[in-house]
């Protein structure tokens, strides 16, 4: 099977979030980038497990500049066979999806994986857009997946429960918690990653559909009001009469 995994970088989850240039840019100073957790823990690892079961290749694709290479090497260290980087800043989800779809059209994959969302933009957009651009099925928020020959059985989240579905490859799937367990790359993986192929391709012209104009931080929380552990009547009174939430 030929598997393609979309990899995005995202700021480490402990990063301090603030903005520069009149709140128009994310302040990257001191920020450590990681592989977006959903892409790494669930999408990439499940793709690697399928390859181990049935053979084939796992390719990763990233839309981004050379600064993304360390994150791509991390994905290779975890076990991907080769990587592709479309050499352009990922302007918006549509631009990103368009680049991935163009690459996929030329290279024909059985399954394209994305993570549920990135932890910086939280859009959940790229997977569905890639599927639409390729006219393929999109399975959103898969929590487990088995593949036999070209038939996949997938558990996916739905409003109010879980649905078990069956479909044929090719398709696009977004991976949520449950799909796989995080893998820590070992020394051999890290060494091997240095020499695995990382192909840089030029982007295809495409207009961005949306742009982020400005950012802001939530207002600071006012001080915490402490209530004695013996006095839950007071807490209930505060929630009912002061906060008016119950």
């Amino acid at each position: 099977m030929k598997l393609l995994v979309c990899i995005s970088k995202s700021p480490d989850t402990t990063s301090k979030i603030d903005f520069t240039d009149n709140n128009t840019k994310f302040n990257e100073s001191g920020v450590q980038y990681i592989v977006n957790p959903y892409d790494e823990w669930y999408a990439l690892v499940r793709a690697l497990e399928l390859k181990e079961q049935t053979g084939g290749t796992v390719t990763t694709i990233t839309v981004g500049g050379a600064a993304d290479d360390p994150v791509i090497r991390k994905a290779l260290a975890i076990g991907a066979d080769n990587a592709v980087r479309v050499d352009a800043e990922a302007g918006d989800a549509y631009y990103t999806a368009f680049q991935i779809a163009e690459y996929a059209k030329a290279n024909q994959f059985d399954i394209i994986f994305t993570g549920k969302e990135t932890i910086n933009y939280n859009g959940s957009q790229v997977g569905g857009m890639v599927a639409e651009l390729l006219d393929q099925p999109f399975v959103s928020l898969a929590t487990s997946m088995e593949v036999n020959n070209n038939v996949a059985v997938i558990n996916k989240e739905m409003v109010g429960g879980v649905e078990v579905i069956e479909l044929n490859t090719p398709f696009v799937v977004s991976a949520a918690k449950g799909m796989a367990e995080q893998r820590i790359p070992n020394m051999r993986g890290i060494m091997a990653a240095r020499t695995k192929p990382l192909e840089v391709v030029a982007p295809v012209a495409c207009d961005q559909m949306v742009s982020f104009e400005t950012y802001e931080l939530p207002p600071a929380k006012s001080d915490c009001k402490y209530v004695d552990a013996e006095n839950m009547a007071e807490l209930v009174d505060l929630l009912h009469n002061e906060a008016k939430v119950i």
Binding site: D92, A93, Y94, A97, E117, N122, G123, S124, Q125, V126, G127, G128, M129, A131, E132, L133, F138, S140, L141, E157, M158, V159, M209, V210
Partner: peptide, 23 residues
């Protein structure tokens, strides 16, 4: 932006070339 919205809105956005503001 519920589980169905997450699956369908991006498809509609790409199909209609209508920019998507999610969340």
């Amino acid at each position: 932006q519920d589980l169905t919205g997450k699956a369908v809105a991006p498809r509609v956005s790409a199909a209609l070339k209508a920019g998507l503001a999610s969340g």
